[in-house]
Simulated scan of single mutants.
Amino acid sequence: MAEKATIARPYAKAAFESARQHHALERWSKVLATASSVVQDERVAGLLSSPRVTPEQLSGLIADIVGSDLDEQTRNFLATLASNRRLVLLPEIASMYEGLRAEAENTADVQVVSAVELNEAQKQRLASALKKRLQREVRLHCEVDASLIGGAIVRAGDFVIDGSLKARLDRLAVEMSH
């Protein structure tokens, strides 16, 4: 939703600037990820739009769940979001924040879905090749999906390589039907 992204962007930039100023990029990542998960929980989602629940109660609930990772800046940030009734934007804010952080740290989070589990040597070769290709430090996040039959799918933002056997068979089926 473009409107949510437009509203969330200044909050994400403010969070990032505060985190960078206080040398707390990792802590802010944890807080935003946890708070984002909290507001996406169906039990909490209903409270976000309830006129019976005050902004202080909402930010207090999230603060209690986030726990020891909160400091004065992150607590104030959550309170500001709550008072402006913007807590629902936390997933978008967290996502944009991570993009800003990755850009500043020159890193890329790469999702690798493979048909079988990759061993350490394969992960190292893949990370090295992606580092060269993306010109960034690479953090691999690996999953296994046996339905791919063989090969893997690699995603880094808009960059996607689908080298799965399933995709090749699907393309072959399309070519044969024409």
Rank of each mutant, 00 (worst) to 15 (best):
139 R>N: 12
48 L>I: 10
146 A>D: 01
139 R>F: 07
31 V>D: 01
145 D>L: 03
115 A>R: 04
35 A>V: 02
27 R>P: 05
62 I>H: 00
16 F>S: 06
118 L>Q: 08
65 I>G: 00
150 G>K: 00
166 K>P: 03
103 E>T: 14
178 H>I: 04
165 L>W: 04
160 V>E: 11
132 K>L: 14
177 S>C: 04
105 E>C: 11
164 S>F: 04
104 A>G: 06
143 E>D: 07
61 L>M: 06
53 V>G: 01
133 R>F: 08
17 E>D: 14
41 D>V: 04
163 G>V: 10
72 E>R: 13
130 L>R: 05
24 A>R: 11
24 A>W: 02
130 L>W: 10
128 S>E: 15
172 L>N: 05
162 D>C: 08
99 G>M: 08
176 M>F: 13
129 A>M: 08
158 D>H: 13
66 V>H: 03
81 L>H: 07
4 K>D: 07
167 A>I: 07
25 L>A: 10
2 A>W: 01
147 S>P: 04
122 Q>R: 13
152 A>R: 04
129 A>S: 14
117 E>A: 15
106 N>Y: 08
72 E>D: 10
113 V>D: 00
75 R>G: 05
81 L>D: 09
23 H>I: 07
107 T>S: 14
62 I>Q: 00
22 H>F: 12
150 G>I: 05
51 P>S: 06
18 S>C: 07
123 K>Q: 15
91 P>R: 00
127 A>Y: 10
34 T>F: 00
127 A>P: 06
178 H>L: 06
46 G>E: 00
164 S>T: 12
40 Q>Y: 00
63 A>G: 10
133 R>E: 08
164 S>V: 09
56 E>P: 02
95 S>Q: 13
176 M>V: 14
1 M>A: 12
122 Q>E: 12
173 A>P: 08
19 A>R: 06
165 L>H: 03
13 K>I: 15
81 L>A: 10
70 L>K: 02
45 A>W: 01
56 E>H: 03
61 L>W: 01
52 R>V: 15
100 L>R: 01
42 E>A: 06
34 T>G: 00
165 L>I: 15
138 V>M: 06
101 R>V: 13
76 N>K: 10
29 S>D: 14
140 L>W: 06
114 S>W: 05
119 N>A: 11
20 R>F: 10
175 E>C: 01
153 I>G: 02
15 A>Q: 05
173 A>T: 11
80 T>S: 11
21 Q>C: 03
158 D>E: 13
77 F>T: 07
74 T>N: 05
25 L>Y: 04
36 S>R: 05
157 G>V: 12
124 Q>G: 11
28 W>C: 07
22 H>S: 14
67 G>N: 06
49 S>E: 09
98 E>S: 12
84 N>Q: 11
67 G>V: 10
144 V>K: 02
23 H>C: 04
11 Y>A: 09
96 M>E: 14
145 D>A: 08
120 E>S: 11
18 S>I: 13
12 A>C: 11
162 D>F: 04
135 Q>A: 14
65 I>P: 00
92 E>F: 08
63 A>K: 02
115 A>M: 07
63 A>N: 01
72 E>S: 13
79 A>G: 05
39 V>M: 00
142 C>R: 01
100 L>F: 09
7 I>N: 01
